[in-house]
């Protein structure tokens, strides 16, 4: 499991490879917060290479969304597979986040 960060235009894109769970959620949080501290405002987390997410992973996404919004920024999500879509629907987090089917659509939506 790992996270890679790159910049596409003015958007910071984070790829989550593997699981986003209790054991690695802090790493994701710190990486995004570091970018936020540098002044970045637009964030996209791409889940195309993600297996599953647990409650603490979901909690980190909620936390990041709040912190980014507090700084006047935006967090968007892309490429949830069917399982992840189910997870977001069960927890109603699909109503809290702006979610796109593809990275391209997400990037265009900023």
């Amino acid at each position: 499991m790992s996270f890679s960060i790159k910049k596409q235009g003015d958007v910071v894109v984070v790829d989550v490879e593997g699981q986003l769970i209790v054991g690695n959620r802090q790493e994701l949080k710190q990486k995004v917060l570091d970018e936020l501290e540098k002044g970045e405002k637009k964030f996209l987390i791409d889940f195309s290479q993600t297996g599953y997410i647990d409650s603490s992973g979901l909690g980190v996404l909620v936390s990041l969304s709040k912190k980014i919004r507090e700084q006047g920024g935006e967090l968007r999500l892309a490429n949830l597979n069917d399982d992840l879509q189910t997870l977001f629907e069960l927890t109603k987090l699909d109503t809290l986040f702006q979610i796109s089917d593809t990275r391209e659509r997400a990037l265009e939506s900023f």
């Binding site: 647990d54 409650s55 979901l58 909620v62 069960l90 109603k92």
Partner: peptide
């Protein structure tokens, strides 16, 4: 119930809810 309006933006408290849903 983490899906209510007051709980939706909580950072914690979804674990047991998810276990029971799944």
């Amino acid at each position: 119930d983490c899906t209510t309006d007051e709980n939706l933006t909580r950072e914690e408290g979804r674990g047991l809810f998810l276990m029971r849903q799944l």
